[in-house]
């Protein structure tokens, strides 16, 4: 209840006209290991910084129903690697939609280097889709590519 109250309190925020200087809703970054041993499992974190009063839509059937774009992270495993489904953070239910609020929301993906992975450099690639809105304004949904390099020793 407290979280919903905080979220709804964002309605109090000053409305900025759409044509004013663009505001910074936040962004994302990866926190990941730079090297792993064969057979090792590591957690890759996608950290979303969300500046109030902006919110980011969560992956949710409610959000699908109203047509907003929920967070979706995908990562392809190179040969010799396995990756898990993303573990998304818990959203705040706003009644008709579900959102993440600031300051941060973190999605995690587990990455396992195969027990017989050959030493060398591996490139993992994927995609992040997300959308920021605040009560009176939305930014267009973004679809960014992501890639990271992990060294298997």
């Amino acid at each position: 209840m407290t979280r919903l109250k905080t979220a709804l309190a964002c309605l109090f925020a000053v409305f900025q006209s759409a044509a004013a200087a663009p505001e910074d809703p936040g962004g994302w970054r990866i926190e990941a290991p730079d090297r792993m041993a064969p057979g090792e499992i590591a957690s890759l974190e996608l950290v979303f910084d969300i500046n109030s009063p902006w919110q980011m839509y969560a992956p949710s059937s409610l959000n699908d129903a109203i047509g907003v774009v929920g967070l979706a992270v995908s990562l392809d495993a190179p040969e010799g690697f396995a990756v898990s489904q993303p573990d998304y953070p818990r959203p705040v239910n706003m009644g008709r939609y579900e959102v993440y609020e600031g300051p941060q929301a973190t999605a995690r993906i587990k990455v396992r280097a195969g027990a017989d992975a050959m030493p060398g450099t591996y490139r993992l690639q994927g995609q992040v889709q997300y959308q920021f809105c605040k009560p009176t304004l939305c930014l267009p949904p973004q679809r960014d590519k992501l890639a990271l390099v992990i060294e298997v020793e």
């Binding site: 990866i30 041993a37 992040v128 590519k145």
Partner: peptide, 27 residues
């Protein structure tokens, strides 16, 4: 899981192909 060798934000971001959104793209 071993905890060694974590490269945080600065390095990881450099590996991102398309720059993540830190402000709406204007250029």
């Amino acid at each position: 899981m071993k905890t060694r060798g974590f490269m945080f934000a600065a390095i990881a971001v450099a590996l991102v192909l398309a720059a993540p959104l830190s402000a709406p793209a204007l250029a």
